[in-house]
Structure formats: C-alpha cells, structure tokens
C-alpha cells in the first residue's frame, strides 16, 4: 500500500502539486476557476501553445528549434504589413508560406546537411531578426483599418462563446495529436527520435522526417503570427523576442524529452497551460507578473527532475 502511494506520488506528484496550487489559488481568488477566467488563460496561451505544437514535433526527433521567436516577429510584421498592402487574405497566405519556407530551410540544414540543430536555429534567430529590421525598416507597423477588417477575428473574435484563438489552438492541438498518434508520419517521428539507427534499418528516411518536423514548426509559428497580428493589430520589431524559450519551457514542462522519442502533444498542451495558469493564478493572488518567472524556474527543475528520477529509478544521478 505504501508502495502504491509512493509510486503514485512519483508518477503524478507534479500533477498533484499543480492541483494543490489550483486549489490554493481558487480558495483565495473566487474568479480563478470561473469559465471566463479559464478562457482568458487559454486565450493567453494560444500563441505560445500554437508554436509549441510544432516545436513538439522537432523535439520528438531529438532536435531543437530556437528560431521560432524571431520567426514569430518576422511573420507578425509581414502579416500586419501585407494586410495594409494586399488585404487580409493574401497577407495570411503569404505569412503561412513564409513560415513554411523558413522551416524548410532549417530542415535542410539540420536534416540533410546534418548541422547541429541548436546552432543552426540560433543562427537563424539572428538572421531572421535582421530580416525583420530589413523588412520593417526599423519602425513598428500597425493595421491601418483596425476597426473594419475581418482579420480581427483570429485574435479577438468569438465563436459559439469561445475565443477564436482558443479554438484555433485546440483544433491545432487535436490535428497535431492525431498526426502524431495515428499517422505514419507521426510514427516515423517517434521512431527517429527513439532510435535513429534502428529507424534507418527499418527503411525510414530520417533526413526527410527531420526536414518535415521543421516545416511543421514553421507552419505553426505562421498560424501563431496570424493570431498575434490579429490580436495586437500591429507589430513591433521585438514582439516575439524570447518566445522560443517560453515555448521550449512549456514543452519540457509537459515532460517531452529533449533526447527525443518520448512525449506527446497532450503533454505539451498540459505544460503550456500550466505555465498559463501559474501566471494567471499568481496575478490573481496579487503578485507582480515577474513572480511567475521564479515559480516557472522551480516548476521546470522539479518537474523534469521527478520525471527523470522516475525513469531512472533513483532520484540522484
């Protein structure tokens, strides 16, 4: 009996701690668990969440994508600017295509050329930041006719009582989850991440698999940029700065392993949402916004350590 409780704590200790956290906040702030507030949290995490869906694919193959923060900035600038020039629909199409192109470029360098993913995407982060300034000329862009355009629907709209960005995130999560769990591509992703050599011996082309995960990551960042542009109705040159790390934090917090092969969309959704609820709960309790960073630090260390300890069978390395 003692063992089962021990095992339970080990396996779900973090979930329990999180529930306790939710309970404490709920007792002290009535609004916390109201549907309205929950939707607010989900609305806030929809952008990082959307990006995290794509990054989960990349991380599952044992690679990283640090370029998505700069990419988000670039694509948001593009979507807002092109909205003024070409109209909302062409702007969205262009944004998504640009996201796919950058993802494909990363994918070629990491998948086919075989360069280190961390450095390549770091270089891309710098390069894209430059591209942002080149494109925008250093000034911020705003949607000219913010009150009239249907473009507002992605960031600000509601559908059947649900915020549209939340719907987009959830639909995206379901699609990504289905792709990972039920398609041949998903199986290849897990295979390459779990054991690249064995996958090659099973006739899987690891290069293409890695390539496509970066394309997915570029695409989800494109969708996130549409939501971002629509919510802000403008874009600063630093709007996506640091997003790559927040997104990675969420993915890692969910328990997806940086070594690849283990993790899921479901876990990413949980991880990203946890970050959202911690942020929101601490604000409701009256803490300044930066206290969430301290808590996030502690939660990441504890969560990953517990996860690792459970897999290893002992706490210390």
């Amino acid at each position: 009996m003692g063992q089962t409780i021990n095992g339970l704590l080990r396996r779900h200790g973090l979930a329990l701690a999180f529930l306790v956290f939710l309970g404490v906040v709920a007792l002290n702030a009535d609004a916390f668990l109201s549907p309205g507030n929950i939707l607010d949290v989900l609305r806030q995490v929809s952008i990082t969440g959307m990006m995290a869906l794509g990054v989960t694919f990349v991380v599952l193959t044992g690679r990283l994508d640090l370029s998505i923060g700069s990419l988000l900035t670039l694509l948001t600038v593009i979507v807002v600017d092109q909205h003024n020039i070409a109209g909302p629909f062409p702007a969205i199409v262009m944004t998504l295509l640009a996201g796919l192109a950058v993802g494909a470029f990363n994918g070629v360098l990491v998948g086919f050329v075989g360069l280190n993913a961390l450095i390549v995407t770091l270089a891309m982060l710098s390069f894209l930041q430059g591209l942002v300034l080149l494109y925008s000329g250093g000034s911020n862009v705003n949607v000219a006719n913010a009150q009239e355009t249907w473009f507002a629907v992605f960031g600000r709209g509601d559908f059947l009582g649900l915020p549209v960005p939340v719907i987009l995130f959830l639909v995206g999560a379901v699609i990504a989850g289905v792709v990972l769990q039920f398609t041949t591509f998903g199986r290849r992703v897990y295979g390459v991440g779990g054991n690249e050599t064995a996958s090659v011996f099973s006739g899987i082309d690891a290069r293409w698999t890695v390539f496509w995960t970066y394309v997915v990551s570029g695409f989800t960042t494109g969708v996130a940029a549409v939501i971002m542009g629509s919510r802000v109705m403008g874009a600063q040159n630093t709007i996506g700065q640091g997003y790559e790390l927040t997104v990675l934090a969420g993915v890692i917090l969910g328990g997806t392993s940086l070594l690849g092969g283990s993790g899921s969309i479901w876990r990413t959704v949980i991880g990203i949402s946890m970050l959202g609820f911690i942020q929101n709960g601490l604000l409701l309790l009256g803490f300044p916004y930066y206290v969430q960073w301290l808590v996030t630090w502690a939660v990441i260390i504890i969560a990953v350590w517990i996860d690792l300890g459970a897999k290893r069978g002992r706490i210390f390395a």
Binding site: L245, A249, L259, Q292, W297, A298, V304
Partner: peptide
C-alpha cells in the same frame, strides 16, 4: 545531482533569475 541536461537547468535559470532581478 539530477543528471538533467544543462540546457534545461539553465533554461529554467534564465527565466527564474530574471525573475529575481525584477523582484
């Protein structure tokens, strides 16, 4: 002690220590 990848540990640190600065 944990055997975690230093990328994760210091990514946490990056976020949390910045929190300390703000506090």
């Amino acid at each position: 002690l944990s055997g975690m990848h230093s990328f994760i540990v210091t990514l946490g640190g990056l976020i949390g220590i910045r929190g300390l600065v703000f506090v």
